[in-house]
Design a protein around this nucleic acid. Structure first.
Lengths: 342, 342
DNA sequence: TGCGTGTTTCAAACCGCTTTGAATTTTGAG
DNA sequence: CTCAAAATTCAAAGCGGTTTGAAACACGCA
């Protein structure tokens, strides 16, 4: 059933039927009802592609997932997607996911712009020096970044980020306040901007506390459980082992916990730990006294909000480079305790 | 730059330019080269929506993610998506993700069929009695299920599944072979078909070993780390505590490990554990002696293959209800040991 | 009754591509 | 050379909607 058939059935012109269904005011209210009834009865829905061609709006938003052969698909990404997806559904947009080899990411954006199959894109996991933003600005494709990169002299763009630096500054402060002096940082990959900023926060707080940063206590990698386990095992085997850990992800914290308990120690009593918590639904860290003290920020909510912002941008409700920077609350947990006496 | 402009620029008709770019044989080879050069130079790419409208092929495959307010987004889903996405890219398809409230899933399929914005869909996480397959068969929308449901008298459809029952039968057998008699099963949600089949495998092997199944040792829930921790903590506190655990997910196994080490026991020595391992990239369980003994099957590869199968179906390379059932290898690990003497 | 005004409907153009069927040019055998 | 066959190219008709500008109709008032 297409528009033409439906209109013939009703003895109306396609124009009127189209308008009736799209809620234009110049249609007689009786006619409108009649059309709607007929559409419902015959299960008519306008052909998506025809409508998109006619309106010039694709109603699609692209997410590019770069993936190498043995690469890791980030659960954080999945959570973000869930949030964004909700916002898209609500606004009638489609999420278009492109899984492409890392080195083809820019080409994918170029192809998207040339063939006009998305109205905008969301950029994930910005790097310290990230070429994607300039590329997208040049292409004129509306986009928003989850995080930010801010190289010098960069054209401004839209982003949504959390206060990574502040969060880790305060978390570190908390640990030094408890008397910890040797603090290990198990961070994300150093090429990631968020990891860079968390490192800055950590270093700043150490300096402010008059402590010096030991590079041997800083590790950066994909944030997996085994990474946390192995890094912590190695560090805890040292003579002057750290008394506290700062982790960039709950998964890593779980690995640390495994390493700690394996040698008969206990988090909160012997070793302290604060982790960033992305509030992943499959890794809850809640209750009245959560297992881990944390700096917490919901990635899912970030996805939802980023999608909203992008849609506002696409539909012209806001102009120019809008940005949002979220505070990150600190939450107490059982993994925190005073530094042991030397 | 659109087709008309490009053809005027070249002094050719749109017909010829279109054919040249789409590799039709009736175009002079010189002309073809000239057209391709001009297209590359001006960065021309055909408008996606116009092409789709003209061809009647949307080149899109839908994935519906049902999500309640406080629902969990499955990391397994993310991994599957990554695999499917690779296959789509390779074949020129787009993945369209719809995040919708659970109760609207069927409506979403109906809308997809009516408005023709996907060529097919992939169904995730089939339930024991799942209404989605019948709905899709009725709609005439090509689809493939990751897993299967097989209610009685159901119309046949395409699916890709692993031998869940066999896998858990053999895993259980392994444990009983080591002398374990009280085995706990920490499964997925009972409404899920895969959990049902794993349970059947477990029960079958227990019976075969002449052991009786204790319902108190069987739990089913969303497969999170805290679920594993809490369930194991509770079970281990019993007088006749289990000596072995069978888990449906590595996340759950991590929780069990936490519970076990918290009370001063050790996996492999005091308590045995076998888990199913979906081979998630962010939760590796490898090396020469993996931490957990496991039944292992890559969800990512399943995603890749399911996508391939669906595309074959859509493009008419295969007909009728095709199915694939994968064997699940058993892998040894450090979490396995003989049952302690009574 | 006649006419201006506001309401409702419609025919036709358009979105940018593919594809059919016909027209044109080339080629090659006679 | 001639002419049928083969190789190229093209004009025009879709695909299924939206949107513009004009036509038809109804209403109220002089």
């Amino acid at each position: 059933m297409n528009l033409k058939e439906l209109s013939e059935l009703l003895g109306l012109s396609p124009t009127t039927v189209s308008r009736a269904l799209n809620g234009y005011p110049e249609v007689n209210v009786d006619t409108k009802r009649r059309v709607e009834a007929a559409a419902a009865e015959h299960g008519y829905a306008p052909n998506t592609m025809a409508r998109r061609l006619a309106t010039g709006r694709t109603m699609g938003i692209g997410h590019v997932v770069p993936l190498g052969e043995h690469d890791m698909i980030n659960p954080i990404f999945a959570e973000f997607i869930a949030g964004a997806g909700e916002a898209y559904s609500k606004a009638g947009y489609n999420m278009i996911l492109s899984v492409v080899p890392k080195e083809k990411e820019l080409d994918t954006y170029r192809a998207m712009a040339a063939s006009q199959n998305v109205d905008g894109v969301i950029v994930h996991a910005p790097l310290v020096n990230d070429p994607r933003m300039k590329c997208l600005v040049d292409l004129g494709l509306p986009f928003i970044v989850h995080g930010r990169s801010h190289s010098e002299g960069e054209a401004p763009y839209c982003w949504l980020d959390i206060r990574n630096k502040d969060a880790f500054f305060h978390a570190t402060e908390r640990l030094t306040g408890l008397g910890h002096k040797r603090i290990a940082l198990l961070n994300g990959l150093p090429s990631m901007m968020f990891a860079r900023r968390r490192l800055e926060g950590f270093e700043g707080a150490m300096e402010a506390a008059g402590l010096k940063v030991d590079p041997a206590l800083i590790r950066g990698a994909d944030m997996t459980e085994p990474f946390g386990y192995e890094a912590a095992s190695a560090l805890l085997a040292k003579v002057d082992r750290p008394t506290a850990f700062l982790c960039s992800s709950l998964t890593v914290a779980l690995g640390v916990n495994r390493a700690v308990s394996e040698i008969g120690l206990q988090l909160g009593r012997d070793i302290s730990l604060i982790t960033h918590d992305d509030a992943m639904s499959f890794l809850p860290n809640g209750g009245s006294m959560p297992m881990f003290a944390s700096t917490k920020s919901s990635v899912r909510e970030a996805g939802y909000r980023a999608a909203e912002m992008l849609i506002d941008l696409i539909e012209g409700r806001v102009m120019g480079p809008v940005t949002e920077l979220w505070d990150v609350p600190f939450l107490d947990g059982a993994s925190l305790g005073p530094a042991p006496r030397e």
